[in-house]
Computed example of a mutant assay.
Amino acid sequence: MTLRAATEADIPAMFSLLRQYESTSLFPLARLSEAGLGGDGPHALCAWVAEEDAAISGVVGLSAAGMLLPQWPGAAWSELRPALAGHKVSGAVGPAEQVRPMLAALGLASSPARHNGDEAGFVLELADLVEPTDESILIRPDHGHRPLMTEWRAAYLTEIFATPPAEAARQAEPDVDRWLAADSHRILQAEGQPVAMSGFNARLPDVVQIGGVYTPPALRGRGHARAVVARHLSEVRSKGVRRAALFAVSPAAVRAYRAIGFREKGRMSLVLFESLQRIRA
């Protein structure tokens, strides 16, 4: 087995491997699709590939924001540390059975983290989507919705990831600007009022990954989260998307997603360090 830095020539084989494990590989798949290898911006990606008998058997991505994105079944994790020595990482997201031994091998398993959890993964064939029957409507947000979306995004970051409020407010603004530019998010309106938000944090022509679903606390327990996700998926199904994936943070979220047809598949780990961690040789 050889572990080496990936090149542009490796991208087709990387796609082929990642597609075999699609539901847990949508972050690296989407990043490769958007920007290839290298480039600028928070979604830019560099990667290392494991090669056996001239075939790629594993991929470990590192985003410009410092997130490790592994998809290396049967990995020899001890080989990764020398390759990544000197790089700074902000966290990791991927299959739980890979993220945990990977962080241990990199000497990062006990690094202070503001979020460190394993969450249930879910998948849905959109032909099986259970659509809402209420009278809510889906809105494509524009710049006029930016203040509300920024407020909701900051609240989400603080609630889910324990991001300090001031930092969450700073992060929310560029997040929302990217969403508006990418047309990735939708707002649910009920009785003339915005009540929930849904988005895609990874997208390919035939599959999407749901992320950042938010309902203000005072409006929870009324089915708004499941309605906004279902209506958003119904919209993209009409444009050729056939599958969806997500991972759920809370029991309430699990119930909501099961209610619209999602079924559980695997577990995902999401780790966000309190500060950048340098990988030592």
Rank of each mutant, 00 (worst) to 15 (best):
I11T: 02
A13L: 12
S16K: 14
L17V: 04
F27V: 06
R31H: 07
G38V: 01
E52M: 13
D53I: 08
V59M: 09
S63I: 07
A65N: 03
Q71D: 09
W72L: 06
W77A: 12
S78Y: 03
R81H: 07
G86E: 06
K88F: 15
S90M: 15
A96E: 03
Q98K: 01
M102H: 08
A105V: 07
L108I: 09
L108E: 06
L108D: 09
S110G: 03
H115S: 14
E119T: 03
E119A: 11
V123E: 05
V123P: 09
E125A: 05
D128L: 04
T133E: 12
D142R: 01
E159Q: 10
A162R: 12
D175L: 06
D177C: 02
Q189R: 15
A190P: 02
E191Q: 10
F200Y: 06
L204P: 04
G211R: 05
R220T: 14
G223W: 12
H224L: 14
V229K: 07
H232L: 09
L233K: 04
S234P: 05
V236W: 04
R242H: 06
A244Q: 09
L246V: 13
L246C: 13
F247P: 13
Y257V: 11
S275V: 12
S275G: 14
L276D: 13
A281W: 06
